[in-house]
Amino acid sequence: MSDVSSRDRKQSWFYTDIVKEHFFHPKNFMDRDVATDEYDATGKVGSPACGDELRVWLKVDPGSERIREFRWKTFGCGSAIASTSVASVMVTENGGMTLEEARALKPMDIMNRLGGLPARKFHCSVLCDKALRDAINDFYRRAGRFDRIVVEASRVVDLVAKVTDHDIEEAVLEGAHTLEAVQQKTKVGIGNPGVLPAVEDLIRFYREKYFG
């Protein structure tokens, strides 16, 4: 990395007022230690080595399957904190989303609600939807309703960053044709270099598939 300052680069300061509001005054974060059975479900994504780790806790109304409470903890940069905070509001407002609605929440929805994020921050810092889906599966697992657990159709290539082959495909389609470029978009293999050969194979495969 070059001179560590980002001051002269400015990129990371391109945060909207909504991002800043959620970053400086995060909503619904878990401010204490919590027993495993206190909440109906938990989910996790990332690791401190890759730069972001996110955990979520849900309380779900058993009848309507609406999310009553969404608590979180995040280790991450400004946009990781802000995107999780805003997602916690989106999931619980107006009586709460049903688990099915929440499962359909996309990173793009979270970003739109924030009024946008710097492009290079998008893939790596909006992880909340993944942690949420992890928690929804945990809810059904605890309830013994295994038929409702949805295993993502795509294959996880980096278990730590929870990057899938689909994420790699999207990054290639968006113009990232080298390992470095794909890492910039997805953070795949950062802090977990063992997966890199498989990632390079995937990049080659999708590059050839779409760009010949």
């Binding site: 990129q11 990371s12 400086f24 730069g51 904190i81 790596c124 470095e180 890492q183």
Partner: peptide, 30 residues
Amino acid sequence: EGEALLLYLDAAGIEASTGSACTSAALEPS
């Protein structure tokens, strides 16, 4: 994480820099 602290410090008028991945273009830490 360093970038988050950097932003909080900036809001308090303190300007520093970080080796966190989040401020590097490559998203690789220092």
